[in-house]
Design a protein around this nucleic acid. Structure first.
Lengths: 152, 152
DNA sequence: GATAAATTGTTGCACGCGCAACTAACCAGC
DNA sequence: GCTGGTTAGTTGCGCGTGCAACAATTTATC
């Protein structure tokens, strides 16, 4: 039974580390994006996700899953961004319940100016986290997750 | 310059994975703890952190850092838990600005009943995440972070 | 084709959060 | 001891979020 308890404790420890690093990055990135681009982290996430689809449309539900947000929060998030002219709703023809969203020109423009801010805040937060002994292992493990397969 | 861009993109990818996994775990654990123990995730985190100090006292500020919460949120979080009789404020004598918090008996009791719920929700969420190809690598990397050094 | 069931997205409401401004207590320097 | 500056914790306020209930559309069953 000791072995099983160990597994539980190891998972809990990993989760605490994950949550701590997430909180550190998110809060510092939130401030940077908010003051320099008038964007919250989730708003940036949406713009970035839409841009990454590149011409492909995303439904509200996919947006909700990509941001871990409830349907209602997704609705209002899209409302805010639409009111600012950063994206547009597109009723899709084959399923009239569904709603696609698409970046506008000023949306991709704002994303382009926000990306360097996002990237720098991320690098900065990771550097700070690397100095904390309980977070350093996770910081070092992150880049190795999606290791590039050496070109053949 | 391509190399530097790669590093930025790899960091961003790691951050997206981290955020996605965090959101998945947090939202599923939130529901479990909320319905079965009337506790939010942060509230559980506080009780757990206090219990882990085991007799040692924590200041509000430390609590705020442990939960990545603002000072005001920390105050109200402690208020809620104190109103429910789960912890008590203790004015500390040598610095009369500082406030220590301590688990009450019913606080540790509730924590004891909530821990299995927390652990099971975590295991369940990790299992689900392991089935998603973009999250699986991080799920597998987590337990290895604080690897036990083989006894010499 | 009509009805039931499931799915998609939107609104009313209460609640927890961060920011800014504030009070209280400590800590220089003199 | 008193003044200026810093730190710890608390409140007012606006805002974003989840939950539950809802309207609109699709899909299944007969």
């Amino acid at each position: 039974m000791g072995i099983k308890d160990d597994a539980v404790e190891i998972r809990a420890q990993g989760w605490r580390t994950l949550a701590a690093l997430h909180g550190l990055i998110e809060s510092s990135m939130e401030k940077a994006l908010q003051t320099e681009a008038k964007l919250s982290v989730v708003e940036y996430t949406v713009l970035d996700a839409l841009a990454r689809q590149d011409g492909w449309h995303m439904r509200m539900q996919q947006l909700g899953r990509a941001t871990a947000l409830s349907p209602s929060a997704t609705t209002r998030l899209v409302n805010r961004l639409e009111d600012r002219g950063l994206l547009t709703r597109i009723l899709c023809a084959d399923d009239r319940r569904g709603i696609y969203t698409e970046l506008t020109a000023s949306g991709s423009e704002l994303l382009a100016t926000a990306k360097p801010i996002h990237d720098e805040a991320l690098e900065c937060a990771l550097a700070e986290a690397a100095t904390l002994p309980e977070l350093a292992p996770l910081v070092e493990a992150l880049p190795q997750l999606h290791a590039v397969v050496p070109a053949s």
